[in-house]
């Protein structure tokens, strides 16, 4: 009995090691391809950066490009260089997956990965732009609200930022087909809830305030414009 168990375990272990052994060439091929492509990406990125600096790309684009308005900390040269670098890395991953499939006995992996790659790229782009737009709008709202002397400027800016971030997160998850209908449902409930809460707050909580404000506006005497004493220009 004990001998049979021992044989059975040995067989299982053997199968596991065999499986690992069959996967190893694939993993090695994947890592090797990825490394090669990383080196190629780095070299080409360096080359692109040198060329762009030589042709003074930043100075040429700074007067006309709106890119710097959205991502002011990144120069156009750095952005182009990064795009080139990561494009090669992504290509390296795809080629690595193909190499993995070719070097191992597993089949169908690359077909599955290749089908999913466009979704990942789309989601990454969505996340990138969502983050940038969220930050940009938040800062715009904050500064404008401060200059309008609104005391709840920070609250407003935080609200706008999270609104954009939540919207982006929902779009990214939807794009990746993660969560299915739950994401749509949760997002709908969340947004609907916020709008309903605001409507209730204004409709019920501020009813008196609105009516008093309207009354005051109606009864207000016509104001004689006061001459501004300060002139900035």
């Amino acid at each position: 009995m004990w001998q049979q168990i021992e044989e059975s375990l040995r067989d299982s272990m053997g199968r596991v090691f065999t499986k690992i052994a069959t996967l190893l060439p694939g993993i090695l091929a994947f890592v090797l391809v990825l490394l090669i492509f990383l080196i190629i990406a780095w070299l080409i990125a360096m080359l692109v950066r040198s060329v762009l600096r030589a042709v003074k790309f930043d100075e040429r684009t700074s007067s006309t490009s709106t890119l710097s308005e959205w991502a002011p900390r990144q120069t156009p040269t750095i952005l182009v260089t990064r795009v080139v670098f990561w494009s090669f890395v992504i290509i390296g991953v795809l080629v690595g997956v193909s190499a993995f499939e070719a070097a191992s006995a597993e089949s169908g992996i690359s077909a599955y990965v290749f089908a999913y790659v466009p979704r990942v790229i789309g989601a990454a782009v969505l996340l990138f732009f969502g983050t940038i737009i969220g930050r940009f709008l938040s800062r715009s709202v904050l500064i404008t609200a401060v200059n309008l002397n609104l005391h709840y400027a920070r609250l407003l800016a935080t609200g706008v930022r999270w609104l954009v971030f939540v919207l982006t997160a929902a779009m990214v998850l939807d794009h990746l087909a993660i969560g299915g209908d739950i994401v749509d449902l949760a997002f709908g409930i969340l947004f609907g809830g916020i709008v309903l809460a605001l409507a209730l707050a204004v409709g019920l909580g501020s009813r008196d305030l609105v009516s008093r404000s309207l009354e005051r506006e109606t009864n207000r005497p016509v104001e004689v414009p006061v001459e501004e004493k300060l002139h900035h220009f």
């Binding site: 308005e69 959205w70 002011p72 900390r73 800062r139 715009s140 500064i143 404008t144 401060v146 200059n147």
Partner: peptide, 15 residues
Amino acid sequence: LRTMNRGHLMGALTP
């Protein structure tokens, strides 16, 4: 240096 958007920068200078 374009530390931030120039419109934002001038807005931050206002106060």
